[in-house]
Amino acid sequence: MLPQSGTSQPKFVGLGQYQIATTTPDSLNKTDFSEGGQTYVKGTLALECPHIRTFLAAKTIVEDIAITNLVLCFFDEKLFAISCDYSDALQNMFQKQYGLGTHKKTMNHQLCSQPGSESMALWGEFWQNADIMAFAIHAKGITNDCTYRATNSLIIISQTMSALSSECNLQEQLPFAETFTKTIK
């Protein structure tokens, strides 16, 4: 059964039990998650971002779906960003709950500074619910460290809390989110 056009989709606030601005590090299952390393201010190796904590799960179950490479980012102990692999099963669940996102055509970005290197192709779709945005990002090509990478990621983020942490380097935890966001605006 297809949803009727003109009807609104349910509003998203996270992924399953992981809810933006509600989930805290203390509520996480300690057997699934390990705390990530210290996050630093962009362009530095010594200036820490003390308000940021990250937790990683190689594999966990969310709403009966196996989720891999789940990363939860907290700002002052409140969840503000979620990143995970965007598998076919997760895509089916997400689109059933929230509908099709707004499609963003393929954009090529030169991330590697080596002469003659190929670009990184980014495409996907996005959803917005007030302050919270979700991105399904598909990336294929040469990264900023000049290695080949092909990935499909789902990122859900609070724009307000993300702005508060914008000086912090979260590229590893939220791959291609910053670059993809720039193509939307």
Rank of each mutant, 00 (worst) to 15 (best):
113 S>W: 15
119 S>Y: 11
72 L>E: 02
93 M>K: 09
58 A>W: 06
65 I>K: 06
43 G>W: 05
98 Y>K: 12
79 L>R: 00
124 G>K: 02
51 H>N: 11
91 Q>F: 05
90 L>G: 00
86 Y>N: 03
123 W>C: 09
65 I>A: 01
42 K>E: 13
85 D>P: 03
120 M>R: 02
82 I>Q: 01
92 N>P: 06
79 L>W: 04
98 Y>G: 04
83 S>F: 01
69 N>Q: 13
117 S>I: 07
80 F>R: 01
72 L>I: 12
77 E>C: 04
97 Q>I: 06
56 L>H: 13
75 F>Y: 08
65 I>Q: 04
44 T>K: 10
40 Y>T: 04
39 T>I: 13
62 V>G: 06
119 S>N: 15
91 Q>K: 14
114 Q>S: 15
52 I>S: 02
96 K>Q: 06
94 F>R: 03
86 Y>G: 03
64 D>K: 11
86 Y>T: 06
124 G>P: 01
67 I>N: 02
119 S>E: 14
108 N>F: 15
77 E>W: 01
124 G>H: 00
51 H>R: 09
62 V>Y: 10
40 Y>K: 06
86 Y>P: 06
102 T>K: 11
101 G>M: 04
109 H>T: 14
43 G>D: 05
119 S>P: 11
57 A>N: 10
70 L>H: 04
105 K>I: 06
59 K>C: 08
121 A>M: 13
111 L>E: 05
76 D>C: 03
89 A>S: 11
119 S>D: 15
47 L>W: 04
74 F>D: 00
111 L>H: 02
51 H>T: 12
106 T>M: 09
113 S>M: 15
49 C>I: 06
41 V>T: 13
98 Y>F: 15
84 C>H: 09
120 M>V: 08
71 V>W: 00
54 T>F: 00
84 C>Y: 09
61 I>P: 02
117 S>F: 13
115 P>G: 14
81 A>N: 00
104 K>W: 01
40 Y>M: 05
96 K>S: 02
57 A>E: 02
98 Y>V: 06
76 D>K: 10
111 L>N: 07
88 D>Q: 11
39 T>K: 05
68 T>F: 10
104 K>V: 14
110 Q>T: 15
80 F>V: 06
42 K>F: 03
34 S>N: 14
47 L>V: 10
108 N>H: 12
46 A>K: 13
45 L>M: 11
78 K>V: 04
88 D>S: 12
116 G>L: 15
70 L>N: 08
116 G>I: 15
99 G>M: 04
94 F>H: 03
124 G>W: 02
65 I>Y: 06
120 M>D: 07
93 M>Q: 03
122 L>K: 09
56 L>E: 13
108 N>Y: 13
61 I>C: 02
116 G>C: 14
40 Y>S: 07
116 G>W: 14
76 D>P: 04
82 I>P: 02
36 G>M: 00
49 C>M: 14
97 Q>M: 09
